[in-house]
Design a protein around this nucleic acid. Structure first.
Lengths: 167, 167
DNA sequence: TTATCTGCAAACGCTTTGCATCGGA
DNA sequence: TCCGATGCAAAGCGTTTGCAGATAA
């Protein structure tokens, strides 16, 4: 299963891992590759499905372990969009999230400032490392669908869940 | 177990429930009372422990059900401070959260604007209902402890976890 | 009277843990 | 060689569901 990555891609990913002081292992290369390639936020389940579709089978626990090490070394980040699931995304540019109350989709919102601590809390003495904003409401897609009035709940569910899909 | 609340408190809580078009039931009165009285953010586990300490035993599922109806009617709100647990808090004033990476405590940060949609996302066409900010970093307490250098990890854990406690 | 909520148990989904084995540095 | 990561299974945690019986409106 290590043969999937073209040599130069493998080089690049290995370099990233090494620069984060992580050992270069096959599962790490595979998962980092997947996360960087697809962008957006993905559940661990998505990652597993994606790998499976490419014929790669990794144990859940390994995927969790790998993601944890990637996160703690800053190569990828997790988005907090509510309890119960962990959404992983590449840490390319700092951004925030909009969660649609109707269809459940999670939409990336670019950060106007672009830096991780883009806002300051009123909390003297604290060391702020990052500020993440979560907006909740109804996404443009659902607003439009509602205006047209032609779509029932089932249709919407299918149409507007860009996140739930596979990577 | 319905005898715990003084009559006038019971009246007040019942009025709140009715104004939210919720039926007035004993578990709802008890749980709403607890959440309003203590303030701050509490896990469902905290709520259960608190009730237990007062000699009130409610099934988990009922607590979850009650909290869900209170949340969906706007009487209380849930804070998203990371995956895996649901923090409940009274919906008195809109505020944000600071999560300490060292001790895990969650600190309320007052919202400068005070309204739920205090920030606008760059997402044309969306209906924004609320914006919640999560800061991550090291809380003032841990910063101070680190500066003094006198506290080891265990001490800190005990000292600075105002959230994990009981209500 | 009726729709709604409670109370109990059991299931569920996601994540973590334990441990023997394997593999990169 | 040796520390750290993998792979597997199984447990853990917080939350949800299903349904019979109770209860507010």
């Amino acid at each position: 299963m290590s043969a999937r990555l073209p040599p130069e891609r493998r080089q690049e990913l290995a370099a990233r891992l090494r620069s984060a002081r992580l050992r270069v292992t096959t599962p790490r290369l595979i998962i980092l590759d997947a996360l960087l390639r697809v962008g957006g936020h993905r559940s661990v389940e998505d990652v597993l499905r994606h790998l499976q579709r490419e014929g790669i089978r990794l144990p859940r626990a390994t995927v969790y372990n790998v993601i944890r090490s990637l996160v703690s070394s800053g190569l990828v980040m997790v988005a907090d969009v509510g309890p119960g699931r962990m959404l992983v995304e590449s840490a390319e540019r700092w951004h925030h999230h909009f969660v649609c109350r109707e269809c459940g989709s999670v939409i990336d919102v670019p950060c106007a400032v672009g830096a991780k601590p883009c806002l300051e809390p009123d909390l003297p003495g604290a060391e702020v490392e990052e500020a993440q904003i979560i907006w909740r409401g109804v996404c443009p897609r659902c607003v439009a669908a509602r205006a047209e009035g032609g779509l029932d709940a089932r249709d919407q569910e299918t149409l507007s869940r860009p996140t739930g899909g596979s990577i």
